[in-house]
Write a protein that binds this DNA or RNA. Structure first.
Lengths: 158, 158
DNA sequence: TATTGTTATACTCTATAACTATA
DNA sequence: TATAGTTATAGAGTATAACAATA
């Protein structure tokens, strides 16, 4: 694997950083996807959706899920349909707006998600065990700046 | 967007880092994909393949491309077929092994890739302009440790 | 037998746009 | 009219496995 063979330019620092960021993310993501598949017969978007719901026990509306997962509404409908069919999440009516639903984990979904989350955390801890706690926090902080800058420029565009 | 709403656990640092890493990568990647689509009518895997070839002017064999791009061989065949059809890359025989090809950029492919690479670099510079040069290098170095650790454990498994 | 690369297949994820129902 | 959500469609990307040709 050598995604980082890509860049050569006059401002190579940002480019090198990007290629390395992409490489690292892909390494971890590939492993998470394959473990989710092997151990729990599920996918990353499904895991993500359930994770959002775990953090919001009262449930989230479809458009909230769409925004948080950074995908369009149709996709959320599809993933939600699968999870409903398996009894892991449910749609509940929102009172006062008969157009909207609130999606939330079922008790069974909670239980199952807890298992996955435990395993998931172990994979992630392993992925970053080459770093000290200080380094983990430093990385987190630096990436926070990247994210923040993105949100700032996003507002400019809008 | 709030991928980072996901984790809560007893070792939350690594998890928080991972979610932020994923968020940042997705933010940049989404933008790169859509710009490649809009401005050059191409995709990230196609761009990646051409980038690998630019760094290796003598060309790369299919299995080398597969390894470097972290995808299976069948996919590389598909992407290569597209690029050959558009005259951007070509397959040349490897002497001494009639099973293998070497894929390399055509002159037209070189020219076209240079245009894309210039635009691509500008997008990336913008994405990270919230960081100082020191911070960019620090981030690069920390991610290097993550990558290195991954490679080390990969060898253990093999 | 092992390796290089291709083909065939199936599935997930995605965006877009048209649509229904409600506000 | 605008909004919440769904449906339909098409396309990209991926892995798997069977296959042909060569080593």
């Amino acid at each position: 694997m050598d995604l980082e063979a890509r860049g050569h330019s006059e401002h190579p620092e940002a480019l090198r950083l990007w290629l390395r960021l992409l490489t690292c993310t892909q390494l971890v993501e590939k492993q998470v996807r394959s473990q989710l598949r092997e151990q729990f017969d599920t996918t990353l978007p499904r895991f993500d959706l359930m994770a959002q719901l775990q953090r919001n026990p009262d449930g989230l509306k479809m458009n909230e899920l769409s925004r948080r997962m950074m995908v369009t509404g149709g996709n959320v409908t599809g993933i939600t349909d699968q999870l409903v069919a398996e009894g892991l999440v449910e749609r509940v009516a929102v009172e006062g707006d008969r157009r909207a639903y609130r999606v939330r984990l079922t008790p069974h979904g909670c239980t199952q998600f807890d298992d996955m989350a435990r395993a998931h955390e172990a994979w992630i801890v392993t992925a970053f065990e080459g770093l000290s706690l200080r380094e983990v926090e430093s990385l987190h902080k630096l990436l926070g700046k990247v994210k923040q800058h993105y949100h700032a420029t996003e507002k400019e565009q809008a």
